[in-house]
Write a protein that binds this DNA or RNA. Sequence first.
DNA 1: AATAAATGTTAGTCTTACCTAACAATTCTG
DNA 2: CAGAATTGTTAGGTAAGACTAACATTTATT
Lengths: 135, 135
Amino acid sequence: MTAIPEKLPESLEMYLETILLLQNKGEKVRQVDIARAMGFARSSVHATVNKLMDMGLLKTDTAGGIDFTPAGKKLAQNVYERHYVFAHFLVSIGVDPITAQTDACKIEHDVSQLTFERIKAFCERNCPPLLDPED
Amino acid sequence: MTAIPEKLPESLEMYLETILLLQNKGEKVRQVDIARAMGFARSSVHATVNKLMDMGLLKTDTAGGIDFTPAGKKLAQNVYERHYVFAHFLVSIGVDPITAQTDACKIEHDVSQLTFERIKAFCERNCPPLLDPED
DNA sequence: AATAAATGTTAGTCTTACCTAACAATTCTG
DNA sequence: CAGAATTGTTAGGTAAGACTAACATTTATT
């Protein structure tokens, strides 16, 4: 049981976010699905999934696939909400959607809670309504 | 003579930015000054400064200190302008200056030229006038 | 059920970017 | 100008996070 660091490294956040997106497509998530989605070797995914399980963020589900623990799900949703808000914000100031996605994907791991909240508030004041990140 | 990659890694950008800040204080810049400013060991700075020289971004000045080549200066100023604009933007939406600095310091290495330009344009429309980044 | 394909696992390697420790060269100071 | 302190350099080490290749296990197909 490895401890969860105060701030999860970007790479681990990306794994969690990817798994959440795959889950939301409705299929059982396997290592190989993560590998394909991220463009990594299966062996790399294996090592990282093991680490995330060791941290208590992932578990194997009843069907033998990969699933979140409650703590893992919370973190994944948090990362995804950041992504969503930053991408939305960037589009709202005139960045094209493709670039907004890639830039949001980097920013989402970096900025403080405070900055996130300010950007979110900015969107709520100035942008068309946010869709639910759960979709 | 190592090639300059299309996108300089964050760590190298931080070295360039730090050197620019030190230069702007008016003193000759030595390895040990960089090491102190960044909180790194002299040996780490040595390796990286060598690499940046090998890339043709830094050179030794006449007094034996470290100076930019024209290409290096351009890159350093570019990084610093990003930093400046992002920090300014964050403050303008209600982030406190300390947090704005640390967040800008991460974002500055990550986002596309387009996003940078949009944020800059946003500032020009909505914020008090920018000071000159050269100061 | 046997074989083929897909998936998971292990072992070993690479790069980046930091570190400490020891040594060399330079610079400062009495 | 000699010793002390500072600065620069070299050697070797570590951790993260990716890789390939080989092997093991599971799943699918005939």
